[in-house]
Write a protein that binds this DNA or RNA. Structure first.
Lengths: 239, 239
DNA sequence: GCGCCCTAATAGTGTTACCAATGAATCGCC
DNA sequence: GGCGATTCATTGGTAACACTATTAGGGCGC
């Protein structure tokens, strides 16, 4: 799936075991992992274990200090925006909560992103978005959910990139995780709702025509619907 | 300032040199830094250089491959949300652009965060926010800008944390960088504008009273004003 | 008995040396 | 001239070492 899951190097393989374990909360905050134990339990050299710890440290998942060992930090201190950490948490038990956080972030960012795109996008990009929307509508009617998901991701990714704000553009990975996560959790209707399709068309048209406010309002309608659906789902799970 | 500027370990010292250099664009995308060159030019062992490269790699600033060396990646691929990278870029020539991106992100996130805080915050936190606002108003009238900045940061940080969304809470560092950056750039009036103080009071009152929509609207007024001020400043710089 | 200081054990930190694996560039064959 | 084999610079990985910081606990004085 993600290119970052790079298992070619040994320290990455260690990371792929330890990272998700910490992200899943399998270690209490304050728990200690010594280098020797890490090296031994994964059958790697101390050096490799140290490289893995360096990366965990840069994500603020652990602190490494002499005599004390490698301490797991409390979750509030983690770099929660790190794409790698997001992936680890989505793979674990906290998945639903992570999905909720990400969806709320998406809901906050995408409407302004659409507004900026309407103001700043290059003509060719606007054209591309309109064409993409046409393909989405056609695919949505055909009922090919997998193809629709791909186009949907592409649609939202394009708008984030067209916003001309690198911090927004940097959320493309998050959005695609959320969208694929939603389908995997069966939070998507079996066939895209006509209302949702219409809203996507509104967004594309508004960006194409440079109407920032309209684009923002239409996008807000889309994401508000998504947040509401997620809350319904959670209420259903708890009730 | 930030606890992450941890120069106790050697690889962090190397990182503190190489990271800002890459973030400043001193290396073209595709430029190669070999481990031996790094080790030699900073007077450290290869092992330490490798640990530094591991961290840079986890931020997607570089890719390291056998025979090829350590290649600098193009800026579009960087993990732009990484607090460390943000700090490096704020320290370099791209500072104004970074500040703009961050401010726009802030403007997108803080209004929804205020809305969530109004819905979810604990009673004690609401009380704290109201009291914080009173101190802000008093300090704003007194004219002590430095103290006011500290309280302002605390105010916005509290709301992000009270939002009950870890992705919002994770932006506290960003907000404090933006706010301090603004004062350093003299983008702040010499004395807080009464209108801004009133809006902060509105936000605090609305969150205290659980009025999500009011809180969101008032916060949006605050951040929109900030974005507008930044755009004026940029227009003035260019003209 | 209580508290302070000092010592010693125990981690991580940093260095060196070595070999394996990789893959880009070059050479040479056809 | 095209294409495959060879070369070799560079990273990947291991091991063993000295150094250093931190803490726990013992010893000493009060």
């Amino acid at each position: 799936m993600s290119a970052a899951a790079d298992h070619r190097t040994l320290h990455n393989r260690v990371l792929a075991e330890v990272g998700p374990a910490i992200a899943a909360g399998e270690y209490e905050p304050g728990a200690v992992l010594t280098l020797d134990r890490l090296a031994q339990s994964y059958g790697v050299s101390r050096t490799v274990a140290r490289e893995a710890v360096r990366v965990l440290e840069s994500m603020h998942l652990v602190v490494s200090r002499p005599r004390t060992g490698v301490r797991v930090r409390p979750p509030e201190e983690w770099s929660v925006h790190d794409p790698q950490l997001i992936r680890w948490r989505l793979a674990g038990p906290g998945r639903m909560g992570q999905l909720r956080s990400l969806t709320e972030l998406r809901a906050a960012v995408e409407p302004p992103a659409a507004a900026f795109a309407a103001r700043r996008a290059a003509p060719a990009d606007r054209e591309f978005l309109l064409e993409l929307n046409e393909r989405m509508v056609a695919t949505g009617r055909s009922g090919d959910l997998e193809a629709f998901l791909r186009l949907d991701i592409e649609f939202h990714r394009s708008i984030l990139e067209m916003s001309g704000n690198e911090m927004f553009a940097g959320l493309t990975g998050v959005v695609s995780e959320v969208l694929t996560g939603r389908t995997e959790y069966d939070l998507m209707p079996r066939r895209p709702r006509p209302e949702a399709l219409r809203l996507h068309t509104h967004v594309a048209d508004a960006i194409g025509g440079g109407l920032a406010d309209v684009a923002q309002a239409a996008m807000r309608a889309i994401v508000d619907e998504v947040v509401a659906a997620l809350e319904d789902e959670e209420a259903a799970d708890c009730g």
